[in-house]
Simulated assay, not measured.
Amino acid sequence: MTPRRLFRTVAIAEAITWALLIAGMIVRSLGITPLGVRIGGGLHGFVFIAFVAVLIFVAGNQRWKPLTILLGLVSSIIPFATVVFDLVAERRGRLDGGWDTDSPGIVGRFRASAVAHPIRAALRALAAVTVIFAVMLIIGPPGSQ
């Protein structure tokens, strides 16, 4: 999987979960059920964390400037903007090329290991996102304090 494909997949997933959350909010506001917000919100929260992790991973590989990273992060809090960010990043060549597995240091070794063993890396990433998500659930939803 190329940096472009990984980033696009998670950007689209993030936009889909935005749609689920918004649909859940509409259903709740109509007095039908709050279940849609719980499900859509949970899925969106999980995929949001995954998007941020993938953004950082891909940004490091592609050597994005801090402003590009910041715009990518901002796109994750605006409904459907991750897809727009992905299209603009692709158009500007920010997602071109493959994985840089020759970088020195721990980051380079981490990336090389992830590329060499993608299933293991995906399982580790899934576990890390799950732990972060679980901690966030324990802390509580936004505005619950």
Rank of each mutant, 00 (worst) to 15 (best):
V52Y: 01
A53T: 07
A53S: 12
A53C: 15
V54E: 08
L55H: 09
I56Q: 00
I56E: 01
I56P: 00
F57C: 00
F57H: 03
V58M: 04
A59R: 01
A59T: 01
A59H: 02
N61A: 02
N61K: 01
Q62L: 04
Q62I: 02
W64A: 05
K65E: 08
K65N: 10
L67S: 12
L67F: 13
L67D: 03
L71G: 00
G72W: 10
G72C: 12
S75L: 08
S75P: 08
S75I: 07
S75D: 05
S76E: 05
I77L: 07
I78G: 04
I78K: 03
P79Q: 04
A81R: 04
T82E: 05
F85V: 04
D86V: 03
D86P: 03
L87C: 00
V88H: 02
V88F: 03
A89Q: 03
E90T: 09
E90C: 03
R91Q: 10
R91P: 05
R92Q: 13
G93K: 07
R94C: 00
L95T: 09
D96Y: 00
G97T: 08
G97E: 10
G98A: 07
G98K: 11
W99L: 09
W99S: 07
W99C: 08
W99F: 09
W99P: 10
D100T: 08
D100V: 05
T101F: 08
T101E: 12
T101Q: 07
S103V: 02
G105F: 05
G105S: 11
G105M: 10
I106E: 11
I106N: 04
G108P: 13
G108Y: 05
R109T: 05
F110C: 03
R111G: 00
R111E: 07
R111Q: 10
A112H: 06
A114N: 09
A116S: 14
A116R: 15
A116T: 08
H117W: 13
P118A: 10
I119H: 11
I119E: 12
I119V: 15
R120V: 14
R120I: 14
R120S: 09
A121T: 10
A121S: 15
A121Y: 09
A121Q: 12
A121V: 10
A121F: 12
L123T: 05
L123M: 14
R124I: 14
R124F: 14
R124D: 00
A127I: 12
V129R: 11
V129A: 12
V129D: 11
T130A: 15
T130V: 09
